[in-house]
Computed example of a mutant assay.
Amino acid sequence: MSPEGLLSIGELALRAGVTVKTVRFYSDRGLLPAASRSSGGHRRYGPEALDRLRLIRSLRGLDLPVPEVDRVLGRGDDLTEALEEAVDGRLRELGSQLTALRWREAALRLVRDCPAGERADRLRLVGAVATPPSTAAMARFWRGALPVRLAPRLVSSILEYAVPQPPEDPTPAQVLTFARLHAIVTAPCPAVDPRRPAGNRTDTDCHPDVLYDGLFDAYGLAAGHLKADRAPDRGQALDRFVAAHAEARGLPDSPGFRRTLSGLLARAADPLVDRYWELTGELTRSPEPTIGAVHAWLRSALHTDVTAAAGRPPSGGPPHPAPTAP
């Protein structure tokens, strides 16, 4: 140590147990400023530099990048808070990396363990999905299918139900299910496909907020019937379902309206959306029915009601439809 109590770069490196190259690296990047320079232009460091260098090494030992270390050190008196923020951020990054590794492992097992004849198709499916997987394509799919005038709060509620979150530690089967969902929402749509943004329901005679508020009420009432495995039939849930459609159009609930609505819902069925809801249930493994399953139950209940009102036995009508989107 010099008479002024300053350390040379070599002395600082020796006391900290690092190389001179390491000290120079941090100095050149502004993390470890020199207190002064000797007459020969050599760096000199104050006693506090040793603690600062040890702190830098500890932060780097946590795998914090150099810019993040610089941000933490620059907070001065707020060092504790800055360190907590940096560690929390690094933990989030590691969590994302671990999720990506688990998805890659499950995808590899899926491809390795499947029958040879299915390997190319499964490789194509899982290869199209990023790791960790993103739900952005599913959100775009549903935003393009919903009415353009729908209130943001209802859009958010629908996306919460319609966009399943990928599990952090998936099985190979869940990886395949998510890949199939991704394939559905990224498949090219025909020009006449109602799921295209230009095909959004823009019926000026229909108030979408009224419709979807009512549908959520009806879905809540019908979900219990599905969980209890009750057959689709008349009741409060069906009445609220029909009322939602009628109120949105400013029309009364009548036998004629129910016949018309039943026909409209049957024609609006989309096999790809049917499959989407089925896969969503497989991915989440939730005991709660999906919106698609609840909608199917209500649509079937409406068909039962219409055929009964016409004096025809329900068994003479179409079979119980597969789940479809509202």
Score class of each variant (00 low, 15 high):
2 S>P: 01
7 L>N: 00
14 L>W: 06
24 R>I: 05
24 R>F: 03
25 F>Y: 15
30 G>V: 03
31 L>F: 06
32 L>F: 08
32 L>N: 09
33 P>W: 04
34 A>L: 09
36 S>P: 03
36 S>C: 08
36 S>Q: 14
42 H>C: 06
42 H>L: 08
44 R>G: 03
45 Y>D: 07
46 G>E: 11
49 A>L: 06
50 L>C: 10
50 L>Y: 01
51 D>T: 10
53 L>T: 09
53 L>E: 06
54 R>G: 07
58 S>K: 09
61 G>Q: 05
62 L>Q: 08
66 V>P: 04
74 G>A: 10
76 G>S: 08
81 E>V: 12
84 E>L: 13
86 A>W: 01
97 Q>E: 15
103 W>F: 04
103 W>K: 08
104 R>Q: 15
110 L>H: 05
112 R>I: 07
113 D>T: 11
113 D>I: 06
114 C>K: 01
117 G>E: 15
117 G>L: 07
123 L>V: 06
129 V>W: 03
132 P>S: 11
138 M>R: 03
139 A>G: 11
144 G>T: 02
145 A>Y: 10
149 R>D: 15
151 A>R: 13
153 R>D: 12
155 V>T: 09
158 I>T: 06
159 L>V: 11
160 E>Y: 07
162 A>S: 13
164 P>G: 08
165 Q>K: 08
168 E>G: 14
172 P>V: 11
176 L>N: 09
181 L>A: 09
182 H>T: 12
187 A>S: 15
189 C>W: 07
190 P>S: 12
191 A>L: 14
193 D>A: 09
197 P>A: 10
202 T>V: 11
204 T>R: 14
208 P>W: 04
210 V>D: 02
211 L>H: 03
215 L>C: 10
215 L>T: 02
217 D>W: 03
219 Y>H: 13
221 L>G: 00
222 A>H: 00
228 A>P: 02
234 R>D: 12
242 V>N: 02
249 R>Y: 07
250 G>N: 07
251 L>I: 11
252 P>H: 12
253 D>G: 00
255 P>C: 02
259 R>C: 10
264 L>A: 15
264 L>W: 13
265 L>N: 04
266 A>K: 08
267 R>H: 11
268 A>D: 15
273 V>C: 15
275 R>P: 00
276 Y>W: 02
276 Y>Q: 02
277 W>S: 03
285 R>I: 05
290 T>H: 08
291 I>G: 11
295 H>Y: 02
296 A>G: 15
296 A>F: 00
300 S>H: 14
308 A>F: 05
311 G>K: 06
311 G>M: 05
312 R>P: 02
312 R>W: 09
315 S>C: 11
316 G>A: 13
317 G>H: 04
317 G>T: 09
319 P>M: 11
320 H>G: 10
321 P>E: 13
321 P>W: 12
321 P>L: 13
323 P>H: 03
324 T>W: 02
324 T>D: 14
